[in-house]
């Protein structure tokens, strides 16, 4: 104790104390951190293993044992976890039967299973990852900017109100009013089915968020003019005219034109 007492006012003491403090915290951090990493690596390995098992059971018949692709299905090497999550969580995969396009249907796997398969596919080669909560936070996005981007990039297939549209030979752009923000983000990232890829170099994160914000605004917005007839445009309006309004007018004409008795 005496030594400490005598040396405590030594000019180097401060430096030594700082060094010791740094070493201790750094050392402790390293020890703790490596422990968690080891645990998460172990977890990842199990998840990937689970994912592989699910993949071999449910997907390999078309995508190949090593996800290398076959005549019936494309390779999944490098598609990333975002593609797996999009396709499986919307029920598009596994495909029930071949057709022009994989239709949306009730999903067949739990969120955990999907995460496992996504981890397995992501472990094969790097690819677009499932968007994080920060990616999907569009609260600060510019809705009007999103509208402009939507009209320039999306509405030619998905329709101005996002209600979907026809493509050639039975393919189609689905109704966005049924899609979640995560699905929209993943779709832009991976270009599923006939959709082009809007990677982060073409459409940076902020732009994707703006588009999602616009789609969500469309979904949430009321129709100030009344019943919107599905927002399909003049076809349903014309149909309403001929079937609804005209019959009403003709009924009135018959009423008024009836013989005075």
């Amino acid at each position: 104790m005496k030594t400490l007492a005598t040396h405590r006012r030594h000019p180097a003491a401060v430096i030594v104390a700082i060094l010791v403090g740094l070493l201790v915290t750094g050392g402790l951090y390293t020890v703790v951190n490596s422990a968690t990493q080891a645990r998460s690596a172990e977890q990842d390995a199990t998840q990937i293993l689970n994912g592989k098992k699910l993949f071999l059971e449910g997907c390999s018949s078309c995508h190949g044992i090593a996800a290398q692709g076959t005549q019936n299905g494309p390779t999944l090497i490098g598609v990333g976890s975002a593609a797996v999550h999009f396709q499986v969580s919307t029920g598009r995969m596994p495909l029930a039967n071949p057709g022009a396009q994989a239709p949306q249907k009730p999903r067949e796997y739990s969120e955990t299973d999907i995460a496992a398969m996504a981890a397995y596919v992501a472990s094969l080669a790097p690819g677009p990852a499932i968007p994080t909560a920060a990616d999907l936070d569009y609260s600060d996005a510019d809705v009007a900017e999103g509208g402009e981007l939507f009209r320039a990039n999306c509405s030619q297939c998905h329709q101005a109100a996002g209600r979907g549209g026809a493509l050639s030979n039975g393919k189609y752009a689905p109704n966005l009013m049924e899609a979640t923000p995560q699905e929209i983000y993943e779709a832009m990232l991976t270009g599923p089915q006939n959709m082009p890829v809007f990677g982060d170099s073409t459409l940076p994160r902020e732009d994707k968020q703006a588009i999602i914000a616009y789609v969500e605004t469309l979904r949430a917005s009321d129709d100030p003019g009344g019943w919107a007839l599905g927002r399909f445009g003049p076809v349903t309006e014309g149909l309403f005219m001929w079937i609804g309004a005209l019959l009403l007018v003709v009924a009135c004409a018959i009423w008024i034109g009836a013989k005075v008795r």
């Binding site: 009209r151 329709q159 101005a160 445009g233």
Partner: peptide, 10 residues
């Protein structure tokens, strides 16, 4: 720009 489902009046 053009929107899918663009229609004229009936």
């Amino acid at each position: 720009q053009v929107s899918a489902g663009t229609q004229p009046d009936w």
